[in-house]
């Protein structure tokens, strides 16, 4: 599937969007957005509430399909494959493009079962030992292994909020996705748990293409290398994070960054 598997400096973007419009019934939520997402970077989507950044994120793995009234126009590609093409298997797409949600949403099952659910769904493990290895490596990569290795059979919902969110990240990376979408992953967490997730995002960089939606501009500045500023459904500016935060091209971006509105 992966046409360009080399990890490092990909010339070709992992995902591309061209002229994307999204409608909820009559209301247009996204207006003509075009953007490239690279494997090497963490890409942050910032913007005021209701600007459409989450809506756009959910287009990238077709989670908007579950909303009856949503309609997506334009072209979104994953490794040059149109993900809205009839031939695209949504189940497979979501295995390749994982997602972490705003509120930690572990299944009310054991920690082990939470992580093992995805691999089991896609038949990634041949036997129990295989599955144990997948679960351990996913928990290790999510920085959770040392905290939970002695209580894998305990319920995932009994952990703290920050641990739950890292469990959700472990669950997403257990199916070995190529892209991870994070929809305000820290908005329900305290500052310490937030710092832990940010470190984790930094560790995962390069291994997965990561797209993070955030309300928190400092967070975008800390974790991302590319930043896209959305406003009223349009992509206002997309550039290196350092450029966006120090020398934005657009006044709207500048006003938002400096806290004029938001």
């Amino acid at each position: 599937m992966n046409q360009n598997p080399a990890i490092g400096h990909n010339q070709q973007p992992k995902m591309t969007a061209r002229g994307v419009n999204v409608f909820y019934g009559q209301k247009q939520a996204i207006k003509d957005v075009s953007i490239d997402v690279s494997s090497d970077h963490v890409t942050a989507f910032i913007g005021p509430s209701g600007c459409g950044k989450s809506t756009f994120l959910r287009c990238l793995n077709r989670m908007n399909d579950t909303v009856d009234s949503a309609r997506v126009e334009g072209r979104i590609e994953l490794d040059s494959q149109d993900i809205y093409a009839a031939a695209m298997d949504v189940v497979q797409l979501r295995a390749r493009v994982g997602m972490v949600f705003q509120k930690p949403n572990p299944f009310p099952k054991s920690i082990y079962e939470n992580v093992a659910y995805g691999p089991r769904l896609h038949g990634l493990a041949r036997n129990k030992a295989d599955m144990d290895a997948i679960v351990e490596s996913a928990l290790r990569r999510a920085g959770l292994w040392d905290e939970v290795k002695d209580r894998l059979s305990e319920s995932g919902t009994a952990m703290s909020g920050g641990q739950q969110q890292r469990l959700c990240i472990a669950r997403a990376i257990a199916v070995d996705p190529e892209v991870i979408l994070m929809d305000e992953p820290c908005s329900a967490l305290d500052p310490i748990a937030t710092a832990r997730i940010e470190e984790l995002i930094d560790e995962l960089r390069g291994r997965y293409a990561i797209v993070i939606v955030t309300h928190n501009m400092q967070q975008a500045a800390r974790v991302s290398q590319k930043t896209a500023f959305f406003h009223l459904g349009s992509l206002v500016e997309y550039d290196d994070t350092s450029t966006i935060f120090t020398n934005p091209r657009e006044t709207r971006t500048k006003d938002y960054i400096t806290g004029r509105y938001g």
Binding site: A95, M99, N105, P108, H122, R171
Partner: peptide, 21 residues
């Protein structure tokens, strides 16, 4: 909660799997 459905859909469960799992 819808978040459970999202979680399962988000890692590639089909709608029927979401219902039965």
């Amino acid at each position: 909660p819808p978040s459970i459905r999202d979680a399962a859909l988000g890692i590639g469960a089909s709608p029927i799997q979401v219902v039965f799992h």
